[in-house]
Design a binder for these strands. Sequence first.
RNA 1: GUCCCCAUCGUCUAGGGGUUAGGACACCGCCCUUUCACGGCGGCGGCAGGGGUUCAAAUCCCCUUGGGGACGCCA
Length: 484
Amino acid sequence: MSVVRVRFAPSPTGLLHVGGARTALFNYLFARACGGTYILRIEDTDKERSTEESVQDLLKSLEWLGLSWDEGPGKGGDLGPYFQTERFDLYNDHIDKLLEAGSAYPCFCTPEDLERERADALKNGQTPKYSGRCRDLSKRDIQQKIDSGITPSIRFKIPLDGEIVFEDLIHGATRFDPSLMGDFVIKRSNGYPTYNFTCVVDDALMKITHVLRGDDHLSNTPKQIILYQALGFELPLFGHLSMILGEDGSRLSKRHGATSVEEFREKGYLPAALTNFLALLGWSPPDRETSENPELLTMEELISFFSLDRVSKTSAILNREKLDWMNGVYLRALSDEEIIELVPELKRSHFFKDDADMVHRYISATRDYYHFLGDVIARIDDFSLWVINKELLTPFKTSAHILLAENFLTLTAEKDSLSTNDAGGLFKELSKRTELKGKDLYHPIRYMLSGKEEGPELIHFLTVLPLKEIRSRIQNSLEFLRES
RNA sequence: GUCCCCAUCGUCUAGGGGUUAGGACACCGCCCUUUCACGGCGGCGGCAGGGGUUCAAAUCCCCUUGGGGACGCCA
């Protein structure tokens, strides 16, 4: 019998930011952890910046992360609609109530006036806040201005006395002096209601119990609280999550590299790695006995361990190296089938076309190198691209190494393929016959086979590539070694 | 400028009066592997500063400093 209802309420003005993703994640985890309901609401009241494309991007990113919502776009729900632009009747009703009660009033100031006042105040070191010029206009004045064709905005009347105190779920007791705030606009002159107002009406009507959102909303909270009170709504609990900052400690922005979930997806990150990493930015699991890395947590584990009292108050810098490491861990843990599914290029590669099993041999030979999805395909070149590397091979133009190559060919002549065991035995036998060992044995073989100094273990090389190809490379190298 | 929030290794964090201040990533070393990667083991490294309170302060209080946020007809 849980009554917890939380929501994530993004505005569709661009791609889903990692900060937003973390807010969504924490709401999701909290809801799942206590059997509550997680709601997605689209805050599209900014007529200029909201786009349908962004809505689709947002939904796509959220789905990709695995943060499915219980109520919202595509899901429905009893307390919809879940797009603010479809809720204007609701907002207007409540604005009328405030107007009737005298808690709100029409404002005829022009944006230019307001901007100038604001700039002046800032310049003179004063607090920029609305002067209240239209607060006490008479009925006649109001009518006159309306008659003259000005469409007013509607402002909410801030009570000038008292103090607003609330208990933040994360920060504890927090207090504000309302007299420091100016009367704020709740309905624009273009008829669109504003954030602070819609947010309150929607959270109340959607019966949200816990408002978990970014720290940047902390100073909006007192305004919203007065609105709740003026509207006669019951207050939800508020919890303000700290911000995510860029590497230099400033607000995360484009110049810090990828900041949107979509960008991370494109760069080859896995959703499970990203959610695990983001969960650790501002939250930590309780201490417990594990032989595993205590920070590697599946979504199920995150849900079972999650609680608000383990959310920290400090802002966090996104540590990309740790994310990269974590992504590698998740990627390497995938099955061959999952990897093949995620990397369609594997199926398309002509390298594997004659040998269906080779893709599996390839993956097991290379998986230790994977950090990003792109790394899976990148290793193919290590095997498929081959030219004689004369520079590497020249020092091995010795009778012993010619003997080595010759014996390699004779010892493999009767075989169709090599197992790991075969390869091990082969090296032993070659060592015996040539009296070469260590560096002198392994390096020349590597150079002959791959033409490179680095690469997967030699044994893998021998098992991944068709033996025919291997023999051909050795044969070609042998001819080079014999040239004087 | 005013108001609000925050302050433990380089980074993410645990710890909330008595701890050798714990873990993760990164870094360094060793091992595994004759490469690289993966993995294992070990190491380096921190309570922003100053005042209180207390037998005892990373922990509680105040100030300073630093960082962030808000002050919009953006959300």
